[in-house]
Design a protein around this nucleic acid. Structure first.
Lengths: 117, 117
DNA sequence: TGTCAATATAGACACATGTCGAAGAATGAG
DNA sequence: CTCATTCTTCGACATGTGTCTATATTGACA
């Protein structure tokens, strides 16, 4: 169900949301990605990670910016990762998260209004 | 609470989500807009409306494309409208919906990865 | 090995959300 | 003025989601 939702975005032939109607399948996958961005904590997490030096951050540098518990942060990071919006890898005790620029670019161009309108 | 969420997007100084961290306030407003797009039916509604000739459509032309009831369609259109993603006006018996290209453009540029990275 | 620090997972709970059918409001036709 | 049509609103219900605490896992280090 959620191997890598980013693929849905990438495989969507849609150059723009406004060009022609989405199929049911396309809309399911896209909704998954938007759902990942549809939470204030996740949005801030995402922009925080991207804003860190080097475009990446460990969880311990993110947590203090929020009023929610560490497990909740962990949960939100998982949602972002399963939507294909961020990647993570472990380095020693820490787990580093970084944004996937490709995912953003796909979404951005999908939302861009078609030029011929 | 939901006068016109589009304003939140427009007033956000962020040229990109990845440039600097979102404030709590900004993230609340943005999440509202993404939430509106985070449903398969609403995504298809949106792209359907945009794809109609003239970029607008009455509800009766949208409903037959879906398996859900007409009140449900009406509910989803309300969500899109309150997020500032579509506009509506009544002409005779029919109510026409059209997309707001400005909203899309704002979201698109917000998601576009910063060039200097 | 044992302990500590950093994250993840599990289970529970309150609240939000998508859906429906029924009823209400607005418009135009006759 | 009534009636049919189009759309919205209301109230209810099942499911989904964000949050917590408690517990597990992973790796570093003494």
């Amino acid at each position: 169900m959620s191997k890598n939702e980013l693929l849905v975005v990438q495989e969507a032939c849609h150059t723009a949301l406004v060009a022609e109607p989405l199929s049911e399948i396309e809309s399911e996958g896209l909704a998954h990605v938007f759902k990942a961005l549809a939470d204030p904590v996740r949005l801030r997490l995402f922009s925080l990670i991207a804003s860190f030096d080097g475009g990446e951050s460990c969880v311990c540098d993110l947590t203090p910016h929020f009023d929610v518990s560490q497990p909740t942060i962990s949960h939100h990071l998982k949602v972002l990762r399963e939507a294909g919006l961020v990647d993570s890898d472990r380095r020693a005790t820490w787990i580093y998260y970084r944004v996937r620029p490709a995912a953003l670019a796909q979404l951005s161009s999908l939302l861009a209004p078609a030029a011929t309108r």
